[in-house]
């Protein structure tokens, strides 16, 4: 048995019907490591991180997360999910609950933390993401950037070991992107293990230890942000970078 990381893909394949969306993925993420995943749309990067918390299931290969093998009958998926925060592109806050209730729902019902304690922790977290004055606001009363920050606080409320971000700023107006990225940088700097699907290369340069470039379901290239941005090794990554960095 080789040494395992926090997240370990070994020869993972996945199909949607006849389409091979993940091709022989092998990738290991160490504890406290921040990995940015990028690539053209349809390259399988969202699918890749959705597999980690079982929102998608894999066809073959091994995926071991926090020492537990996915798809193994001995793995309690619901339990494992409590250790993995997931931030969605479209936020997916609960519209019928306030910001504070969004943050405290899982700690109260899953972690069984007493309500008053959970609410105090929730207020602290919302303050940390700069929304101390929005605890009682409903998602519809918040801007996109504020909603995404609540969503990040909602994940942090579970004190996860891993945080996954699926294009967290893609649905935001440009002026709101930095407020979300700032929060993500702060989370990264506290030593969270993170996988982030994003095209925000400034974020990648600032906090990522590694950039993984995917195309057509396969990992084409992977390296430090410096290597990847200044000296991309493949034609496909060069073509991709020239498109996103042109402006």
């Amino acid at each position: 048995m080789t040494k395992t990381g926090m997240i370990d893909f070994r020869g993972v394949n996945k199909w949607f019907g006849a389409l091979n969306v993940l091709k022989d993925i092998t990738l290991s993420v160490e504890p406290r490591e921040v990995v940015v995943v990028c690539g053209p749309s349809g390259s399988g990067k969202s699918t890749l991180i959705r597999c980690i918390n079982g929102l998608e299931t894999i066809r073959d290969g091994d995926l071991v997360v926090d020492g537990q093998r996915l798809g193994d009958p001995a793995t309690n998926m619901t339990r494992l999910r409590t250790e993995i925060g997931f931030v969605f592109q479209s936020f997916n806050l609960y519209p019928h609950k306030t910001a504070l209730e969004n943050v405290t729902l899982a700690p109260i019902h899953v972690r069984k933390i007493p309500r008053t304690e959970a609410e105090q922790a929730g207020r602290d977290l919302l303050a940390k993401v700069g929304l101390a004055d929005k605890v009682d606001a409903y998602p519809a009363q918040l801007s996109g950037g504020q909603q995404q920050r609540v969503a990040i606080a909602r994940c942090l409320g579970m004190r996860p070991k891993i945080m996954l971000f699926d294009e967290p700023t893609s649905a935001l107006d440009p002026e709101m992107i930095s407020e979300v990225l700032d929060v993500m940088v702060a989370v990264a700097e506290e030593g969270m293990t993170m996988m982030v699907v994003t095209h925000e290369m400034g974020f990648a340069r600032k906090v990522a230890q590694r950039v993984v470039f995917m195309d057509a379901g396969a990992i084409v290239e992977s390296g430090t942000p410096d290597e990847f941005f200044s000296n991309p090794k493949t034609d496909r990554s060069r073509a991709f970078l020239s498109k996103i960095l042109r402006h």
Partner: peptide, 9 residues
């Protein structure tokens, strides 16, 4: 999916 991801039964 959000509810699943936060470990709700």
């Amino acid at each position: 999916e959000a509810a699943l991801a936060s470990g709700l039964s």
